[in-house]
């Protein structure tokens, strides 16, 4: 277990994350109070239930071990988020996962004259429910999982957890502009994956149905 992760308070505070520290820090109280929220965040970061359970357990254990520090914390959810992020990274390192995609550059091919090398088309609107909506959801979750840790964290914190850019950038110890670049490239990667999905869908349809 990561004994040396940074646990400096992230100084993140917003209505999204504000909460009081409970009187009792018994395991049952912690699980009841924070378990579900940590699990959902961990599940989005780790990508599967087993790892999410391990991350949740490790996060709460760290909270027990550092109870006095936690009691003095004015922003308990910020503190918890940071530990959850660290534990999720730790479990990613331990698992022999396939290498993440590289997003060091803008994930859009550009020609020498500055024009894109690719003709984009608007996507169809994704339906709210039904088999197609489920397929889109699966594809997007897969695309999120293949992002490098820091990029996945940016998408999870802002687009799924609803944190503001300043909140998320503080949690990830990034300057705001660096954080925005990371989030933007991650979204573009997801866009590219969703484009492949819609192209496959169009390939499956009978020719007469194509626009």
């Amino acid at each position: 277990m990561g004994c040396c992760v940074s646990l400096a308070p992230p100084e993140v505070s917003s209505p999204t994350m504000a909460a009081d520290v409970p009187e009792s820090l018994a395991p049952a109280t912690l699980v009841e109070r924070y378990g579900e929220r940590i699990f959902r965040l961990a599940r989005r970061l780790a990508g599967n239930d087993t790892d999410a359970e391990d991350v949740t357990q490790a996060t709460l254990l760290k909270l027990l071990q550092r109870a006095s520090e936690f009691r003095g914390e004015s922003d308990p959810f910020g503190w918890i988020y940071r530990i959850t992020l660290n534990e999720a990274r730790e479990i990613h390192r331990r698992r022999a996962r396939r290498p993440a995609v590289s997003l060091d550059a803008l994930p859009l091919a550009v020609q020498e004259d500055g024009h894109f090398a690719h003709a984009f088309r608007p996507f169809p609107s994704t339906p709210d429910r039904g088999p197609l909506a489920q397929e889109v959801e699966v594809r997007v979750r897969e695309a999120i999982e293949e992002l490098p840790d820091g990029y996945r964290e940016a998408v999870v914190l802002v687009d799924l957890e609803g944190l503001s850019y300043p909140e998320a950038s503080k949690l990830l110890d990034l300057h705001l502009n660096a954080f925005k670049t990371r989030l933007h490239r991650a979204r573009l990667h997801l866009r590219n994956r969703l484009e492949s999905f819609w192209n496959e869908q169009e390939g499956r349809r009978p020719q007469g149905d194509r626009p």
């Binding site: 599940r43 984009f120 994704t126 998408v155 979204r187 997801l190 866009r191 969703l194």
Partner: peptide, 15 residues
């Protein structure tokens, strides 16, 4: 298409 991706992400249900 970028807008649509953000919309899809915002609607992604918690597991």
């Amino acid at each position: 298409s970028y807008d649509e991706v953000v919309r899809v992400l915002e609607r992604l249900k918690p597991v």
